[in-house]
Write a protein that binds this DNA or RNA. Structure first.
Lengths: 227, 227
DNA sequence: GATGTAAATGAATGCCATTCATTTACTGGT
DNA sequence: ACCAGTAAATGAATGGCATTCATTTACATC
């Protein structure tokens, strides 16, 4: 019965190396993996989210993760579903339909603008694989039904709004001068004039102006088709 | 003066190995790289687009590519700009504004729905780095100006339309049954009812219905703000 | 004819997700 | 009390990937 090996003096981060074999208490579960991934993303960005880094932040070997997730995409799915729960659907059934859509869409965009690498995953993800995401859709759909929209147009309207939200989430991360033509400005006079004029007028973020403009158009347009 | 080594008999694909050193005539240029990349993408998809595969399809060593592009992202940028030239802006200045926007947006979505991995690149790409993309924006901007839109709203309107187009491009590639809740259907009755109703009514592709719905709302909404 | 630059090869580098054999712990059945 | 099966960890591969660098050769210019 050998005495436990003392920690090698360093810090709290430097833990004793675990020997091989199943530990007495499980170290990993999907929830822990999800929150560790979120912390890693928040600290190092999506480039810093590697299976090795994730394992290290959890104090395990990389291969241990595969006892709990099938792949890195699976980790992204867990993160996505966690974020979906943060989207604000609370206004549906409480505030008028247009105000609820507005709150939902702005919140949805804001949440995912920090997580654009998830968009290619979400956009083609069957909702059955993501329960919290599914709950979000249910709330939104119910809001549309209550507001008198015909069933056969609700999904299409949500899909259209969502497409706009995803695209706008990318736009939030675009550089402010993305439309500067630089040395080619003379060759694109109309674009340059419009860009200059926008810069002169605005005080709020250009990306927010564009989002508001599009969202209000969509809300108005859909509202006109309500039953 | 040794005799030239005969080709190893195989086929036209099996060429003589080039010896090291600068060849008499340059083999690579950006245009060749771009068209080879497009062919590779079309045959093998974006997963098949690796620097090694690209080099092989051009009959060179991978490192040779780096004499002509700075990185793989640079290759994607070349591909993007090539595709931008395929987007139909011909209706601007010819047809009425709303019809021109409709043609542009549908064409834009159709082109990039086959190239969604480019969207994260485009969405934050300074236009000055992509001349054909820049030309597209100039044509669209000119169309808006001719139609009487105030300069300060044109960029915002284009950004909003583009966001919708990018999001919709992803949607084209989503599985048709993406909203099926599967075993969780009982827990999301509103969503399930709306999904079922849509399936019962539609004959055109759901993704096209949603795109049309959103696009018409945007066109109507923006049109109302024209000067 | 020397010198610099451009365009190729080929070998290495480092990172990455993923797999597999192995070890150890717990649980349920007999 | 034993045994079998399953679950969760380690640690050592594996193969693919973009990218870099030293080297070689060709061409253009002075």
């Amino acid at each position: 019965m050998p005495a436990p090996i003392p920690a090698s003096s360093a810090g709290p981060a430097e833990s004793v190396r675990r020997r091989a074999g199943r530990p007495t208490a499980a170290i990993l579960d999907q929830e822990g993996i999800t929150t560790a991934a979120l912390k890693l993303i928040s600290n190092k960005g999506y480039n810093g989210l590697t299976m090795a880094a994730l394992a290290r932040s959890l104090g395990v070997a990389p291969s241990a993760l595969y006892n709990h997730v099938a792949s890195k995409d699976d980790v992204l799915l867990l993160v996505e579903d966690h974020l979906a729960a943060m989207v604000d659907v609370s206004a549906f059934g409480v505030e008028p339909w247009d105000a609820a859509v507005r709150r939902w869409a702005w919140s949805y965009r804001d949440v995912f603008s920090e997580h654009t690498p998830l968009i290619p995953v979400i956009a083609v993800l069957p909702v059955a694989d993501a329960p919290k995401t599914l709950a979000m859709y249910e709330a939104v759909t119910a809001g549309f039904r209550d507001a008198g929209f015909p069933d056969e147009m609700i999904i299409s309207a949500i899909v259209a709004l969502e497409a706009f939200v995803f695209g706008a989430a990318y736009d939030v991360n675009a550089p402010e001068d993305i439309f500067d033509a630089g040395s080619l400005a003379e060759q694109v006079p109309n674009l340059t004039a419009a860009v200059d004029r926008l810069a002169a007028e605005q005080h709020t973020r250009p990306t927010d102006v564009a989002f508001s403009l599009g969202l209000e158009a969509l809300i108005t347009g859909f509202g006109a088709l309500r039953g």
